[in-house]
Structure formats: structure tokens, C-alpha cells
Design a protein around this nucleic acid. Structure first.
Length: 266
DNA sequence: AGAAATACCCGTACGC
DNA sequence: TGCGTACGGGTATTTC
């Protein structure tokens, strides 16, 4: 579930307890979380390094270490938090990274889909990602041009991290609803006005999400408030705020999709 | 190129 | 009540 706003929230929360900490020990309870290098090498390489910076690119958290980068993707059910190493470990905190001040970074992941990378460069990961939707350089004309260069349904295109980095199922449904665009629309059929409206909507739902510390839709991700402001996600059979029509849940390329059939016509 | 299916996981909700 | 099963959510990968 963590999408751009949830990841951004974690970055902000983790900076102060992580930056300038030195890694003294690592516990790997689910070695398959370590995508690269091998778990043994991972441990050898990371111990002794100090965390210099923490940033985000798309849904990836990027810890800048002295000699390389620790990159973490939470996928659907991952979460990260720092706590005192004396505190009881939660059942799903499979990977823990202990710091020099007896606190530790815990990677808790109920569904074990998350991935951890240790790499000399971030390029291998970040160069494949599309633009950051909230950056100054992501202009409305860039979106319009990009939409026109593809002939794909708009929703799966927005979910494609190579096209745009950071959108997930929830914020995509919310953005398309706000822009009054049907998720099955072909990307290259959007008018300039529709594209501009979509550009505004994407940025607005993401900013709102960040402002509210992300969304907590289930037991997995804690502390967010954005779920209280959803207009369509999880609102099937409830009335649309703008037109009172009932929100519909449909399937678009194998993903649950929420629309107002009146506001978002094909 | 892009659509569709599949694999990876497991807590929860739902049907019987 | 208990058991079985479908579901969801992000992405890589494979196949059509």
C-alpha cells in the first residue's frame, strides 16, 4: 500500500533517528528481502557504515551510506521504524539494522514482498523510473506529451513506474476521479484541458496525502489520516460527493478500480 | 508495444 | 463455531 505520500512520510520520520547513526549489527530473519547482494555479503558490507542522508525516489527509500546506498522498497505491506533495541520485536519485523546508540531500524513486512538493495550507485534503480510528479520539472506540458506518446489505458499507465514514479492504486483512483477522467480512457485521446486537469489532480492528491501523513487503510501502515478524505477509493455503493451517483467498483487490468460513473464517463 | 497472466505472501473477510 | 477460499496490493517476469 505505501505509495508516494506514505513513503515520503516515512522518510521525514526516519531522518532524525537515522542520520549520522553507525550500523553495528544486522539481523536477517527473511533473507529473501535482500534482493542484492547475497545476504551474507550484504551483512559484511553494511556493518560499520554510517548513514549520511535519507531521501526518496518514487516509492524507493534511499539511505546514503559512506560507501554505497541502502535502498528499500516497501511494496505492499512493508513498514520501517526506529525503536530502542530493547523493545519487544514485532512478529513481522524480519530485518533489523542495529545502530551505535542501541536503537534499531526495523523493517516489518507482513506479506514479505518488500525488497532491500545495497548498491554502489542508485542509477540502476532510479534511472528506470519516470518523473517525480511533485517536482518543478514535471510540467503539465510534459504530462500531455507523455500521454500522447502512448496508446494505453490511462490507469495502468499512471501505475507504471517507468511512466511516472510514485502513484499506486489508491492515489490513481483519487486523481482520476478529481480530474473527472475514466480510468479506461486511452492516454492519447485526452484533450489538453483534460491532461492539465489530470496534472493538477495528481499533484493535489499527492500533496494532500503528504499533508495528512499518508493513508492508513488497513492494519499495515499506521499513523496516516488521508483515508478520511478519500472520494472514491473504498467508497463503492456510497454516494459521490459531487453528483450523488453511487460509486462503482470495477476491474481495470486486474486492479480494483473505483469510479463515479456519472462524473467519469468513458 | 502493450495486454494479460502469473508469481510472490499472508491476514482478513466472507460463505457455507 | 470452524473450515475453506477469495481477495488485495506493487512489481518483475513471462507469454501472447
Amino acid at each position: 500500500m505505501p505509495e508516494l505520500p506514505e513513503v515520503e512520510t516515512r522518510v521525514k520520520q526516519l531522518r532524525s533517528p537515522c542520520i549520522n547513526r553507525k550500523i553495528t549489527e544486522v539481523h536477517l530473519g527473511w533473507p529473501r528481502h535482500i534482493h542484492t547482494p547475497s545476504p551474507v555479503e550484504f551483512k559484511q558490507r553494511i556493518i560499520g557504515q554510517q548513514i549520511k542522508q535519507l531521501n526518496r525516489r518514487g516509492k524507493f527509500l534511499i539511505f546514503t551510506l559512506e560507501a554505497e546506498f541502502l535502498i528499500i522498497h516497501l511494496r505492499m505491506s512493508g513498514d520501517l521504524y526506529v525503536t530502542n533495541s530493547d523493545n519487544t520485536i514485532d512478529q513481522h519485523a524480519h530485518t533489523t539494522i542495529t545502530f551505535d546508540n542501541s536503537s534499531e531500524l526495523r523493517f516489518s513486512d507482513v506479506r514479505k514482498f518488500g525488497r532491500i538493495y545495497l548498491m554502489k550507485s542508485t542509477k540502476q534503480i532510479t534511472s528506470k523510473l519516470g518523473p517525480e510528479p511533485l517536482s518543478k520539472t514535471f510540467t503539465k506540458s510534459i504530462l500531455f506529451n507523455k500521454l500522447n506518446s502512448h496508446k494505453r489505458m490511462i490507469k495502468p499507465l499512471l501505475l507504471d513506474q517507468h511512466f511516472l514514479a510514485g502513484m499506486g492504486n489508491i492515489y490513481t483512483d483519487e486523481a482520476l476521479h478529481l480530474a473527472k477522467i475514466h480510468p479506461a480512457r486511452q492516454s492519447n485521446t485526452l484533450s489538453l484541458n483534460e491532461s492539465t486537469s489530470l496534472w493538477r489532480s495528481i499533484r493535489q492528491v499527492l500533496r494532500d496525502g503528504i499533508k495528512n501523513n499518508g493513508a492508513s487503510i488497513d492494519w499495515v501502515y499506521k499513523g496516516g489520516n488521508q483515508q478520511n478524505y478519500f472520494k472514491v477509493y473504498g467508497k463503492n455503493n456510497q454516494k459521490c460527493i459531487t453528483c450523488k451517483e453511487l460509486i462503482l467498483k470495477i476491474t481495470i487490468s486486474q486492479r480494483g478500480t473505483h469510479i463515479c460513473p456519472n462524473c467519469q464517463k468513458l
